[in-house]
Amino acid sequence: MCLLQESPSIEGDSPSQSSEPLRVLPPFIVRTATPADALAIDGLIAASYGALMRPVYHDDILARALPRLMRTAPSLLSGGSYFVADAGGVLLGAGGWSQATPFGGIGPASNGHMRRVAVVPHAIRSGVGSLIVDHALAHAQTQGVENMFCLSTLAAEDFYKAKGFDATGEVELTLEPGLYLPAIQMRRTLN
């Protein structure tokens, strides 16, 4: 699930245009994730989602929702389409895509779904999230994906709009009976 990436930004905003001071990040590579990365990715997602969703969602919802969003499915990490920004063993970001929906269903091979994009809080708005999404989209296109879908948190909607996604509707993700997380369904054509 693409439940948080970078803080909301204005389309066309870049780190050099921001009023925030430029952050210096350690050198990193974008590589394919492996199952051995699971704990580090789950920790990265916990930090990212916790920091970035807090201003948008009520504390009661987050207290119940965040623990359900923390575990990354092993199949996502072994599928070859999930990536990490690795700074010598320290992960700055993660994200990818799958043909399976976030709920496990599989549609046409021409459709893909953004999955679990996150950036560590100190690297937000540094370009790490954009780089990972661009890498995932390019990879998906080489695999024949023509349409990329995304279930975005309310906090990440502007980020995805800046990456070329259009909102197609509001949804409520059922995380458990009685626990709903408002989200935005988004879509982007890749060809």
Rank of each mutant, 00 (worst) to 15 (best):
C2Q: 08
Q5C: 12
Q5I: 06
E6C: 15
S7G: 13
P8R: 04
G12F: 04
P15G: 10
Q17M: 11
Q17C: 08
E20V: 04
E20F: 04
E20Y: 01
L22D: 01
R23W: 01
V24S: 15
L25T: 04
L25F: 01
L25K: 11
P27W: 00
F28K: 14
I29M: 12
V30G: 07
V30R: 12
T32M: 07
T32D: 08
T32C: 13
P35A: 02
A36Y: 02
A36D: 15
A36C: 08
A36H: 11
D37T: 10
A38C: 08
D42F: 00
A47K: 12
Y49D: 04
G50N: 09
G50F: 04
R54C: 06
R54V: 02
P55M: 04
P55E: 01
P55S: 09
P55A: 10
P55R: 10
V56L: 05
D60W: 00
D60R: 11
I61S: 13
R64N: 14
P67I: 01
R68E: 05
L69I: 03
G80M: 07
Y82I: 04
V84Y: 01
D86A: 13
G88M: 06
V90C: 11
L91D: 03
W97S: 12
S98A: 15
A100S: 14
F103P: 04
G105T: 09
I106K: 15
S110F: 10
G112S: 09
R116Q: 11
V119E: 00
P121C: 09
H122C: 06
A123E: 02
R125N: 14
S130V: 03
S130N: 09
D134I: 02
A136C: 11
A140L: 08
V145I: 09
E146V: 14
E146L: 13
N147L: 12
M148R: 10
F149T: 06
L151I: 06
S152T: 03
T153E: 01
T153Q: 03
L154D: 06
L154K: 09
A156D: 00
E157H: 14
E157Q: 15
Y160P: 12
A162H: 13
A162V: 05
K163T: 03
F165P: 07
D166F: 06
D166G: 12
A167Y: 00
A167K: 15
T168G: 08
T168F: 04
G169T: 07
G169L: 01
E170N: 15
V171D: 00
E172L: 07
L179W: 01
Y180S: 10
L181F: 00
L181V: 01
P182V: 00
A183N: 03
Q185P: 03
Q185M: 13
M186C: 08
R188D: 05
R188V: 05
N191V: 05
